[in-house]
C-alpha cells in the first residue's frame, strides 16, 4: 500500500502494519444487478491440522502444556485425557494462526488499565502470553518445589493449579489467575472443537456429553426424541475420527 498522509478533508490515513494487512490485496468489488456474475468467493477449503511437528510451541513448552492440560482434563473411565485427545497439537496450531496473533483485536493506544467491566486492555497476544506465562509458571513451580511441574505428584499438580486458579500463587509479571482462565478455555476448546483442528480425537469430547457433531437436520427427531435419549455416533467435518 502506498503511504498516504493527509488526504482530502484533513483525514489522516495511517499506514500502520495493521492497516496494510487488512488492505492487501484489493478486495473492493462492484456488483451490478442483472450482470449475472454475483457469486461470492467460496470459503477456503477445510484442512486437517498436521500434528506431526510443533509449529509454535517449543518441545519443552509442549511438554509442560501437556502436563497442565492432563490435570485439567484427565484420562479416566469417561474418556482419554487432554494430551492424548490432541489438545496440545490444537493449541500449538491455534497459537501459530490468527488467534495466536490476536489479529482481530483493536491494538491502538494509549493502553491503560481500566475498570473490570471495561474488558481486557492488554494488547499482548495469546502467543506472547503463552511464551511468557509458561516460563513464569515453571518459575513459580521451581520456587515452591525446586522441581519442574512435570515431576510433581498428581496431588501436588492439582494443589498447585488450584493456587494458580485462585491467584494465591502469583507470577512475576502476568496475572496467574488470568493465565489459568486462558489455559482452561483453550483445553476445553481443544477437547470439544471439531477434530480437524487437532484435538477431540475420536470425538471423545462429543461422546462425553452426547453431542452429535455436524448434523444439520433434526426434523425427524425434534418431536419423536423430545425428552428422550438419542444414541448416535457423532459426525465430524472431513469425516475424521
Amino acid at each position: 500500500m502506498k503511504r498516504r498522509d493527509v488526504i482530502k478533508g484533513g483525514l489522516v490515513l495511517m499506514a500502520t502494519s495493521t492497516l496494510a494487512s487488512i488492505y492487501k490485496p484489493a478486495y473492493s468489488k462492484t456488483y451490478v444487478g442483472g450482470s449475472g456474475a454475483w457469486r461470492a468467493t467460496p470459503p477456503p477449503p477445510l484442512s486437517v491440522v498436521d500434528g506431526s511437528r510443533l509449529v509454535y510451541l517449543t518441545a519443552d513448552e509442549a511438554r509442560l502444556v501437556g502436563a497442565i492440560f492432563d490435570v485439567l482434563i484427565p484420562a479416566d473411565e469417561l474418556g482419554m485425557g487432554a494430551t492424548e485427545a490432541g489438545c496440545v497439537t490444537f493449541l500449538d496450531h491455534q497459537l501459530a494462526g490468527p488467534y495466536g496473533t490476536a489479529a482481530k483485536d483493536y491494538k491502538l493506544g494509549p493502553v491503560v488499565e481500566g475498570l473490570p467491566q471495561q474488558g481486557p486492555q492488554s494488547i499482548m497476544t495469546p502467543a506472547e502470553i503463552y511464551r511468557k506465562g509458561l516460563a513464569e509458571f515453571e518459575q513459580a513451580v521451581h520456587a515452591k518445589f525446586d522441581k519442574s511441574f512435570t515431576d510433581l505428584s498428581e496431588e501436588q499438580k492439582i494443589a498447585f493449579l488450584k493456587s494458580i486458579e485462585s491467584g494465591a500463587i502469583a507470577f512475576d509479571t502476568l496475572k496467574s489467575d488470568q493465565f489459568f482462565v486462558l489455559l482452561l478455555q483453550n483445553v476445553r476448546e481443544g477437547y470439544l472443537a471439531d477434530p480437524m483442528y487437532g484435538g477431540n480425537r475420536d470425538m471423545v469430547g462429543w461422546k462425553l456429553v452426547g453431542f452429535p457433531g455436524a448434523i444439520y437436520d433434526y426434523r425427524d427427531w425434534i418431536v419423536s426424541k423430545r425428552g428422550k435419549k438419542i444414541d448416535i455416533h457423532p459426525i465430524s467435518l472431513l469425516g475424521r475420527a
Binding site: 468489488k29 451490478v32 444487478g33
Partner: peptide, 14 residues
C-alpha cells in the same frame, strides 16, 4: 431479487 435489477449496484469492502 436486487441482483436482477440493472438499476442496482453494490460496492463492497468500502
Amino acid at each position: 431479487v436486487l441482483m436482477q435489477r440493472p438499476n442496482f449496484t453494490v460496492v463492497t469492502e468500502c
